[in-house]
């Protein structure tokens, strides 16, 4: 569904991504893991259109979307949940959600909203409160909910575990995994917390200094002691 073909991106003078190719198939979670500075966030930002690639292509449903604007990419069906629980604290919970997918029909949006409230009941309970009143985990749910409001076919999750308690991380990721399986959503998950990510992912990709050093079934990667010591540091 989402295919990345020989992508190279410079971040300032630094080569953040070097010739990265990977596939994100529908209906499952694909996890990209690696240490801090491996180029994970750059990969996500480039896919969402926030950074311009130096070389390579991004294909979505066989259509070349390389270099498109973020607001166009999200309309095509790729939604990014950026790092750091990117909600807008000045808006209410429901306003944060309604921000997603304004171009969609009224009926579509109403359906999505119902679904998001079903997935994350706490958001429904607090729909009229300011987003600044939510806890860290609830904000992460809100950020994912906003992305789901755009009716995506592919969901990009950038470090959802950052600063959250392990239990909450597991809950959220398992929910995402269910969602992928049930509705055929393609999920690309970027994580520093490799163990948790590989538990929900089908495929694992290890990124180091902007290059893919290993890819394969998540379970294999999780059990690869050498890999863990060399790149993942646990």
């Amino acid at each position: 569904m989402l295919r990345i073909d020989a992508l190279s991106v410079n971040y300032g003078a630094v080569e953040a991504l070097k010739n990265v190719s990977l596939d994100v198939p529908p209906g499952r979670v694909t996890a990209v893991i690696g240490a801090n500075g491996a180029g994970k966030s750059t990969l996500m930002r480039t896919l969402a259109g926030l950074e311009k690639p130096l070389a390579g292509r991004v294909l979505f449903n066989d259509e070349d979307i390389t270099g498109s604007k973020p607001e166009d990419i999200v309309r095509m069906g790729i939604a990014l949940v950026p790092e750091g629980r990117s909600t807008i604290p000045d808006l209410t919970v429901e306003e944060n959600l309604k921000l997603g997918g304004m171009w969609r029909t009224h009926a579509q949006r109403a359906t999505s909203l119902t679904r998001v409230y079903a997935l994350f009941p706490v958001l429904g309970e607090r729909r009229h409160l300011g987003a600044d009143t939510l806890s860290g985990g609830e904000r992460q749910q809100l950020a994912i909910g906003r992305a789901l409001m755009t009716g995506p076919q592919a969901l990009l999750l950038d470090e959802p575990s950052l600063g959250l308690a392990p239990l909450i991380v597991t809950q959220i990721l398992e929910l995402v995994e269910h969602m992928a399986r049930d509705s055929g959503l393609a999920v690309l998950l970027v994580e520093q917390n490799a163990a948790t990510a590989l538990r929900v992912a089908k495929t694992g990709i290890v990124l180091n200094l902007g290059e893919i050093v290993k890819s394969g079934p998540a379970r294999e990667i999780a059990q690869d002691e050498e890999l863990r010591h060399a790149y993942l540091g646990y």
Binding site: P70, E71, V74, A79, P82, S86, E95, M102, W103, M149
Partner: peptide, 17 residues
């Protein structure tokens, strides 16, 4: 809503379409 979001956080607004 779109105007307010664009003012508060243009990046999140863009990512929301």
């Amino acid at each position: 809503l779109a105007m307010r979001a664009s003012a508060f956080n243009p990046e999140v607004a863009r990512l929301s379409g």
